[in-house]
Design a protein around this nucleic acid. Sequence first.
DNA 1: TTGAACTAAATGCATATGCATGTATAGTAA
DNA 2: TTACTATACATGCATATGCATTTAGTTCAA
Lengths: 139, 139
Amino acid sequence: MNKLDRCLNLELRKANRVLSQIYDSYMAKCGLKTSQFSILRAVSFLKNTTNRQLQDVLVLDQTTLSRGLKPLIRDGYLKVKEGADRRQKELLLTKEGKALFSEAEALWLEAQNYVESCLGDSTKEQLLSLSKSIVALKQ
Amino acid sequence: MNKLDRCLNLELRKANRVLSQIYDSYMAKCGLKTSQFSILRAVSFLKNTTNRQLQDVLVLDQTTLSRGLKPLIRDGYLKVKEGADRRQKELLLTKEGKALFSEAEALWLEAQNYVESCLGDSTKEQLLSLSKSIVALKQ
DNA sequence: TTGAACTAAATGCATATGCATGTATAGTAA
DNA sequence: TTACTATACATGCATATGCATTTAGTTCAA
């Protein structure tokens, strides 16, 4: 535990960059980045959701999410409805969004299978439990 | 291993965001982002280095690094010398860069100690070994 | 030597990220 | 009601990220 130690943050960032590039290379065929896929996937699970709820699910800053939604809305994959609380915006997949998500999900599964086959089950479980521990540090 | 599994990439991204925000909150006192600190730290270890060498050390795309260097050069923390191979640019810390790095290193150590104390030794080791495994997947 | 192949770095483009702040709406207590 | 507080989302700003491409310099074989 001294200043010659490897930086935990840098090590995780490096891993994050490599892993994201792998997933992105699979997703490229459908024109989505994995971050966009994550949003569609969350909306698909939650059916009818809001910016606020997605922030919690995706562990994203409100402003980051707000901007991340824009291309998906612009390109017609997400639809915005005004909520009962008029500050909120309800989000749902359009028909085009559902179709794109289906296509993307197959590519995602290829990537996920590839990575799992490279890492093995025990490393995969380590990734999940480690990520959970770190996310739990969020203030 | 089916499509209801958690996405390994999303889980890692979430962890990465949380961890980076923790480190950034410590680094904020000196005005550096952790990504900039990582660059200064690498240059400090390598003494006299090049864009190309930093790409490997930091596992960063050439174009990302190229742009990441700009504010550090602009603000006088890094100096650029033309290399023997005139395509290359040699990088080194200026006096101001060294001073800032010293200050930043103390803040980084606080962050690192805080995170290590939260995670514990075994989880810390898991982070390091997992990151290593993932970085090794890089094509 | 010269032209093809290769390498180092920069740039255009688009999205990703989050802090500080602004704007609109909702809730609540005087 | 009114005014204070809290919440939901958007915007300005700056950096982070990487793909495709460009520009410049090096290498090497014909």
